[in-house]
Amino acid sequence: MTRPVVTLLTDFGAGSEHVGALHAVLAAGAPGVDRVDLAHDLPPGDIRAGALVLARLAPLVPGAVHLAVVDPGVGTADRRPVAVALAGGGAIVGPDNGLLGLAARALIAVGAVELPPLPEHLPATFHGRDLFAPVAARLVAGEPLSELGEAVDPAGIAVPALPEPRVGDGELAAEVVMVDRFGNVQLLAREADLAAAGFRRGDRIHASTSDRRHPATVARAFGDVARKGMLVHIDSHGLVAVAVNGGSAAQRIGAEPGGTVSLGRWPVADAG
């Protein structure tokens, strides 16, 4: 990378003053450095969703310093603040609460330090502004990781729990990891799981979160089903997703993050 970059990922909300505070600290501490907002609209406090988004977006900016803050335990001893060095250059800075681990594995962590606590005169509830952003600025300016804190084993950086789907002949049940603003429902299952259940493109199946079954078609793209039709497909991140062409799958089937969606063969007798 010819120009130094800091990326930002938070659950602060797009356009919030908290995001502005991070940018202000970075601009003051590392003037001239490019800043890229990866996402600020993550579900509040959803560490797992943040970890998955960070792991799939951080590799798009090789060599960058990645500042990530989804931190419901801020100011407590529940997690340690860390900076993690990456094999291809750059680093990840944020709370070691599961948010950083997937990206650290994807980009191959080669070192890590635990950052020292904030002075008592500073508030305990905004580590993004008062601790993580200053550290990110120092790293992108070229300061060695070893000068920022006490060395810790990078293999110990926490990762979130990612439950495996339950797969059988003609059935698949997986946890909902995310619902986007369109109502698309992303599941913790992959294409191999869909195939293991015996589902192929064009198959008529159902999706449900309760006893009520909703018909769907295994498809590649939204346009492969009629408008307002439901499809099950592999999304742009390689995960199984349930969607409605021109509508909200989450609303139709009652899906929420942390819940379970079951997929099964659509009974012949019920097919219309």
Rank of each mutant, 00 (worst) to 15 (best):
residue 2 T to H: 10
residue 8 L to C: 05
residue 16 S to V: 07
residue 19 V to T: 12
residue 20 G to D: 11
residue 22 L to Q: 03
residue 23 H to T: 13
residue 24 A to N: 06
residue 24 A to K: 04
residue 27 A to W: 02
residue 31 P to Q: 03
residue 31 P to M: 04
residue 32 G to M: 08
residue 33 V to Y: 02
residue 34 D to Y: 00
residue 37 D to Y: 00
residue 38 L to G: 06
residue 40 H to E: 12
residue 40 H to A: 14
residue 41 D to T: 10
residue 44 P to A: 14
residue 47 I to F: 02
residue 48 R to S: 13
residue 50 G to W: 08
residue 50 G to E: 08
residue 55 A to D: 05
residue 56 R to S: 15
residue 56 R to V: 14
residue 56 R to T: 14
residue 57 L to V: 12
residue 58 A to M: 10
residue 59 P to D: 11
residue 60 L to H: 14
residue 60 L to S: 15
residue 61 V to G: 03
residue 61 V to W: 03
residue 64 A to G: 06
residue 65 V to K: 06
residue 65 V to P: 12
residue 65 V to L: 04
residue 65 V to Q: 06
residue 67 L to P: 07
residue 70 V to L: 10
residue 70 V to N: 01
residue 72 P to T: 12
residue 76 T to R: 10
residue 78 D to G: 13
residue 79 R to Y: 13
residue 80 R to Q: 14
residue 83 A to M: 09
residue 84 V to C: 09
residue 84 V to Y: 05
residue 85 A to K: 02
residue 90 G to F: 11
residue 92 I to G: 05
residue 94 G to C: 03
residue 98 G to H: 06
residue 99 L to T: 02
residue 99 L to Y: 02
residue 99 L to H: 02
residue 99 L to Q: 01
residue 101 G to I: 01
residue 101 G to D: 02
residue 111 G to D: 15
residue 112 A to T: 09
residue 112 A to N: 06
residue 113 V to A: 12
residue 117 P to C: 06
residue 117 P to N: 07
residue 117 P to A: 13
residue 118 L to S: 04
residue 120 E to D: 15
residue 120 E to P: 09
residue 121 H to G: 00
residue 123 P to G: 07
residue 127 H to T: 01
residue 127 H to R: 04
residue 134 P to W: 02
residue 135 V to C: 03
residue 142 G to Y: 08
residue 145 L to S: 08
residue 148 L to P: 05
residue 148 L to G: 05
residue 148 L to Y: 09
residue 148 L to T: 05
residue 150 E to I: 12
residue 150 E to Q: 14
residue 151 A to Y: 03
residue 153 D to A: 13
residue 154 P to D: 03
residue 155 A to Y: 00
residue 155 A to W: 00
residue 155 A to F: 02
residue 156 G to N: 03
residue 158 A to P: 01
residue 159 V to D: 02
residue 159 V to S: 10
residue 161 A to Y: 00
residue 161 A to V: 13
residue 168 G to D: 13
residue 171 E to N: 01
residue 174 A to R: 06
residue 174 A to E: 05
residue 175 E to S: 11
residue 176 V to G: 04
residue 176 V to Y: 01
residue 177 V to C: 05
residue 178 M to L: 14
residue 178 M to P: 00
residue 179 V to D: 05
residue 180 D to E: 08
residue 182 F to S: 11
residue 189 A to C: 10
residue 191 E to D: 14
residue 191 E to R: 15
residue 196 A to V: 07
residue 199 F to M: 10
residue 200 R to K: 11
residue 200 R to D: 13
residue 206 H to S: 11
residue 207 A to C: 13
residue 207 A to L: 04
residue 208 S to P: 00
residue 209 T to V: 15
residue 211 D to P: 00
residue 211 D to A: 14
residue 212 R to I: 14
residue 213 R to I: 06
residue 214 H to M: 00
residue 215 P to Q: 12
residue 216 A to Q: 08
residue 217 T to Y: 01
residue 219 A to H: 01
residue 220 R to A: 14
residue 221 A to S: 12
residue 222 F to I: 00
residue 225 V to I: 14
residue 225 V to S: 08
residue 225 V to A: 08
residue 226 A to G: 11
residue 229 G to F: 12
residue 241 A to V: 06
residue 242 V to Q: 02
residue 242 V to T: 07
residue 243 A to R: 10
residue 243 A to K: 09
residue 250 A to I: 11
residue 251 Q to E: 15
residue 254 G to I: 07
residue 256 E to C: 00
residue 258 G to Q: 09
residue 261 V to E: 09
residue 265 R to S: 03
residue 268 V to S: 13
residue 270 D to K: 11
